[in-house]
């Protein structure tokens, strides 16, 4: 346990002080990492805790980003309005998608979520006001209560870090609550939960929609970070990328997806410095992680018990 404490302490100090001693390039790199960690965390809520393997999470990520773009086109640029709207838009889309997809299970669920995401991808590719398949540049980051704080990369880093920390605590509350326990029961044996008198569908749908809200928020943050939105945010490889983070880190845990996002994106950054063909290393590495490290990186972590929720 002491090793674990020390690691957590170093980890938190590192991330809390990073913009103070780092250059702009690395601050922005880690801002992106934090945003992707938020996306991975939201996906893990559905996949790891809910047991619903969604292969279309890019739909909600991209919706958040496009909502940011849409509002800036109409001159609404304040983060206090735009970001909740982005999360809300993702929830609004997730509600029908979830309600329809949850009628199916297993491989069908994977494929229908993928199909819905592709539907939105092609819809966005056809939107001429957003530059169609080329995408669109945003003029500036959102303002915060009318002030242009977010222009400063260091400040924006802390905003992203704050959202990740907030989402982490929210998910911890959620998974430890009655709601989270019922969700865990459904994941392990849905028939039994139904026999116990739980209507499982509303729980699963609620989990799906909450997860979409967090994903939409991360999309809005990403649009602010890169100041660029394009259908590639909605592409199915984006969903795959997020799933990789979750599995690499360890699904069914909260620290896992965050760890996975950090490791995967840093690995991509480092490998791409050595060779432009870094994916030829990453691909087999993924297969090895799936085959031999079943709990992900978090599963390799020295600890007494794996986590309060066993990975499915």
């Amino acid at each position: 346990m002491t090793f674990r404490r020390i690691f957590c302490f170093v980890f938190i100090v590192f991330f809390a002080t990073l913009p103070l001693w780092s250059d702009v390039f690395h601050t922005r790199l880690f801002t992106r990492i934090l945003i992707f960690a938020l996306l991975a965390l939201s996906l893990d809520l559905v996949v790891g805790y809910g047991g619903m393997v969604s292969f279309g999470h890019a739909a909600f990520f991209g919706t958040g980003a496009y909502m940011t773009g849409l509002m800036s086109l109409h001159g609404i640029t304040d983060a206090l309005v735009v970001w909740p709207a982005a999360a809300g838009a993702a929830m609004l889309i997730a509600l029908p998608i979830g309600a329809l997809s949850l009628r199916t299970r297993g491989a069908y669920f994977i494929m229908i979520t993928l199909a819905f995401a592709q539907m939105i991808y092609y819809f966005a590719s056809g939107l001429e006001t957003f530059g169609g398949s080329d995408g669109m540049r945003l003029l500036a980051r959102n303002t915060l209560a009318g002030k242009e704080f977010l222009r400063h990369h260091e400040f924006f880093y802390y905003v992203a870090a704050g959202f990740l920390a907030g989402a982490f605590l929210l998910c911890r509350r959620l998974t430890g609550s009655r709601f989270g326990l019922i969700l865990g029961g459904i994941r392990q044996n849905e028939k039994r939960m139904q026999s116990l008198g739980y209507a499982t569908f509303p729980y699963k749908l609620t989990c799906f929609v909450i997860s979409a809200a967090l994903a939409g928020l991360s999309g809005a943050l990403m649009a602010n970070e890169t100041l660029y939105i394009s259908p590639s945010l909605l592409h199915w490889t984006q969903s795959g990328h997020a799933l990789v983070m979750v599995i690499l880190g360890g699904m069914g845990t909260l620290a896992g997806p965050v760890l996975g996002a950090i490791v995967l994106l840093l690995m991509e950054e480092i490998l791409s410095a050595f060779t432009q063909h870094w994916m030829i290393v990453l691909g087999p590495l993924l297969i090895l992680v799936v085959l031999y490290a079943r709990g992900g990186l978090y599963g390799l972590w020295p600890q007494k018990k794996v986590s309060h929720v066993t990975p499915p």
């Binding site: 996949v47 393997v53 795959g240 799933l243 990789v244 599995i247 030829i280 691909g283 590495l285 993924l286």
Partner: peptide, 21 residues
């Protein structure tokens, strides 16, 4: 299925890069 999706996704990355090389 999740493990399968992920491992074969890794294969896609591998083959795409192999062809590019």
């Amino acid at each position: 299925h999740l493990d399968q999706v992920l491992a074969t996704y890794g294969l896609i990355l591998f083959f795409n890069e192999l062809v590019r090389m």
